[in-house]
Structures are given as structure tokens and as C-alpha cells.
């Protein structure tokens, strides 16, 4: 029997704590408990209002069971087409602009000034919420799908350029260098060395983004930027829950189909 064992026998054993410094551990624990209490107290729930609302909630659940597709069929159709149009065009334009910006934002193939400019475009686009951008663009360009289209394009640029740049940054350097070694020009280097490596991933990301853009286009209408969101908002305002349920079901269906398709396409290109 060793001395180390002697010291341990008969002693209670406790799992060593996750954070070894007791001061830090207790500060974090007490801090988060205090925060949670404060936060929960700051949310005042008007229970009588909630109770009255339950009735409406139940109406909505019932509406989901028999959604009304017909009485506002024309509006739903127009709204869905507008959403789809916005999603599609903005994705195409977004990709077209993302490619040069993505290339510029990749540290390994870009020069510093270009890199900084492209990275700041990406940062701004990612930091601004789509809804906020849509509000501003509606104020500037007026109501309608143009504002929505511009918003989604802008958001797509931030999303795609960043991922594209990262993809290029950790792609296989040897391949690109092999092409450079043949004495290729910058454009040729892109077409033969970088393009083939990045394209499958780019296609996958684009389809994923199309999916996101469609979902987003469903809410932009709430702030007047076109699409199915406006129809949905109107339905809620009129308390036409059966129409609202119909719209939501259509959105879910389209999203599911898109997700399914994108899965297939991504599996095929990769």
C-alpha cells in the first residue's frame, strides 16, 4: 500500500470542479443566478391578457387543422410568386457580386488594400439585420419588391463572400501553385487553379442561401419590402387565422421542398 493511497483512503471524494478558481466559480454562479432572477422579474406577464389570448391561440390551432387556401387564393399566389422572384433574383445577383468580393477577401490571393475593403463590406453586411436594412431601403426606394431584392442581395453578399473567402483560404495550395508554376496569368490561375476547387462548395452554398433568402423574403413584407410577408401580416391584422395558417403551411412546404432539393443537389456536386 502506497503513501498516496493511505492519504486517500477514508477521505470523501468529489469531482474536481470545472472552474478551478473558487472565487471565479462563485462569482460566475452567483452572478448568473442574480441575472436570471432580475431578467425574469423584468418580464411582466399580463396573465389575464394571456388567459384571454388562449382562446385566440386555440382558434389558431383550429385554423391550422383546416386552413383556408381559397378565399384569398389570388393574394397568396401573388405573394408567393413575388417571394420566389425576390429570392431567386437576389441569390443570382448576390452570387455574381460575392465572387469578386470573396476572392478579394481571401488573404492568400488578394493584396492588402483590396482585402481590407472586401472584408469591411462583408463585416457591414453581416452585422446589419435584414429587417433593419429592409426598413432603410424601403424608406429610400419606396415600398415594393425592389427594396426586398436589394436587401436580400446585400445579405447574400455578406454570407457568401465570407464563406467563399474562407474556402479559398484553406483550399489546397499545392494545386494552385502547380498552375502558377506553368506561368499562368492571374485570370488563368483563377480559372484553372482556384475555380475547380471552389465551385462544388459554391454551388452548395448558393442553394443553401436560396433557401435562406426564401425564408427571409417571407418576413420582409412585414416592413413593406414585398413578398408573402405582406399578405401574412394583413391576414394576422384581420385576425384571419385560417388564411394565415394556409400561408404558413405553404411556406413550410416550400422550405421543406427546397431543403430536400438542396440536399440532393449538394450530394450530387460534392
Amino acid at each position: 500500500m502506497s503513501a498516496a493511497l493511505d492519504a486517500r483512503l477514508g477521505q470523501p471524494w468529489k469531482k474536481p470542479p470545472l472552474i478551478s478558481s473558487p472565487a471565479l466559480r462563485w462569482t460566475l454562479l452567483v452572478g448568473s443566478v442574480i441575472y436570471l432572477i432580475l431578467a425574469m422579474n423584468s418580464i411582466d406577464v399580463n396573465w389575464s391578457r394571456v388567459y384571454r389570448g388562449l382562446d385566440r391561440g386555440w382558434q389558431f390551432v383550429v385554423a391550422f387543422a383546416n386552413p383556408d387556401f381559397t378565399s384569398r387564393a389570388a393574394e397568396i399566389k401573388d405573394g408567393m410568386i413575388e417571394s420566389a422572384v425576390m429570392a431567386l433574383t437576389s441569390t443570382v445577383v448576390g452570387i455574381a457580386i460575392s465572387i469578386p468580393i470573396g476572392l478579394g477577401a481571401a488573404r492568400n490571393i488578394s493584396i492588402l488594400p483590396v482585402y481590407l475593403v472586401c472584408r469591411s463590406i462583408v463585416a457591414v453586411s453581416r452585422a446589419l439585420n435584414e429587417i433593419v436594412v429592409a426598413i432603410l431601403l424601403v424608406a429610400i426606394f419606396g415600398f415594393g419588391p425592389l427594396a426586398g431584392f436589394l436587401t436580400l442581395s446585400f445579405a447574400t453578399i455578406g454570407f457568401l463572400s465570407k464563406l467563399l473567402a474562407e474556402e479559398i483560404e484553406d483550399m489546397d495550395k499545392v494545386q494552385a501553385e502547380a498552375v502558377r508554376a506553368t506561368g499562368a496569368s492571374w485570370l488563368q490561375r483563377y480559372v484553372f487553379g482556384i475555380h475547380p476547387q471552389v465551385v462544388p462548395r459554391l454551388i452548395g452554398l448558393s442553394i443553401y442561401r436560396l433557401d435562406i433568402n426564401f425564408r427571409e423574403s417571407a418576413v420582409l413584407g412585414i416592413v413593406g419590402a414585398g413578398g408573402i410577408g405582406a399578405t401574412l401580416n394583413t391576414a394576422f391584422d384581420r385576425y384571419e387565422f385560417d388564411t394565415a395558417a394556409a400561408i404558413l403551411l405553404v411556406i413550410i412546404a416550400v422550405v421543406m421542398v427546397l431543403e430536400y432539393l438542396s440536399g440532393i443537389i449538394r450530394a450530387r456536386v460534392q
Binding site: I43, D44, V45, N46, V50, V219
Partner: peptide, 24 residues
């Protein structure tokens, strides 16, 4: 799936009608 395909703003739109406007 149903939770994921609907944007939080739409959920909020719906819940404001049901629970009344506010943080809750």
C-alpha cells in the same frame, strides 16, 4: 422542421396577437 422553417418575426407576429404585445 416546423420550428425551423418559420422566422422568429412571424412567430412574434402570431404571438403578439395571442398573448398581447410585450416582452413575453
Amino acid at each position: 422542421v416546423s420550428s425551423r422553417s418559420i422566422n422568429s418575426l412571424i412567430w412574434a407576429l402570431l404571438l403578439v396577437k395571442i398573448l398581447g404585445p410585450g416582452v413575453f
